[in-house]
């Protein structure tokens, strides 16, 4: 048996900042694509410790776990600590819901600063004003030519989730936008 393989994130070692914003690769996290209908929500609640949010564009958080509404039967669960969610879901089985681990499919960029909205609006066509996209709001949308999941974590702070192989593009796009914002 050889040594245990080490993780290499797609954005390891990167960072970028202007006077308006900073970009930081998010730390590794456990992610689950949760799919369930009405009858699966109780099970999901039991495992997560809270009910998945039912309102479009909204999120719910408890402890290290964030649960983002993506669609009427779809949530993106992000667990910053390893609370063993995949095992807990596996134990419950697939009769009422589907939980697929996508910890490595996605990666995330943390975008912070006074110009964050301007930077995002260089490529994201949604209205990101606080009135329309308040702290806690989240949505799958697009940034330039990439799909992203956008999650507002603070007045001037966003988490930009994207697929692994799109992260170089998303990072470069945000950098380009930050320079010209």
């Amino acid at each position: 048996m050889s040594k245990v393989a080490q993780r290499t994130g797609p954005l390891d070692g990167r960072n970028f900042g202007t006077t308006g914003v900073t970009l930081t690769p998010a730390a590794a996290a456990t992610r689950i694509s949760l799919r369930a209908r009405e009858d699966g929500l109780a099970t999901a609640k039991k495992i997560l410790g809270f009910a998945p949010p039912g309102k479009p564009k909204s999120s719910a958080t408890k402890g290290s776990i964030n649960c983002l509404w993506i669609g009427p039967d779809e949530w993106l669960v992000i667990d910053a600590d390893d609370s063993g969610l995949p095992a807990k879901f596996a134990k419950e089985g697939n009769t009422k819901l589907s939980a697929v681990e996508i910890s490595h499919r996605n990666t995330a960029i943390l975008l912070e600063g006074a110009k964050a909205v301007d930077v995002l609006n260089s490529g994201c066509p949604q209205d990101l004003s606080s009135a329309s996209f308040p702290v806690g709001a989240c949505s799958r949308t697009i940034l330039g030519k990439s799909e992203i999941v956008l999650y507002r974590t603070g007045e001037h702070a966003f988490r930009v989730e994207c697929w692994r192989s799109f992260s170089d593009y998303v990072w470069s796009f945000l950098m380009d936008a930050a320079k010209s914002a």
Partner: peptide, 13 residues
């Protein structure tokens, strides 16, 4: 039908 689809293209190398 009770079935759900999730892309895992990039979950797996």
């Amino acid at each position: 039908w009770k079935v759900w689809l999730t892309s895992t293209s990039e979950q797996w190398a």
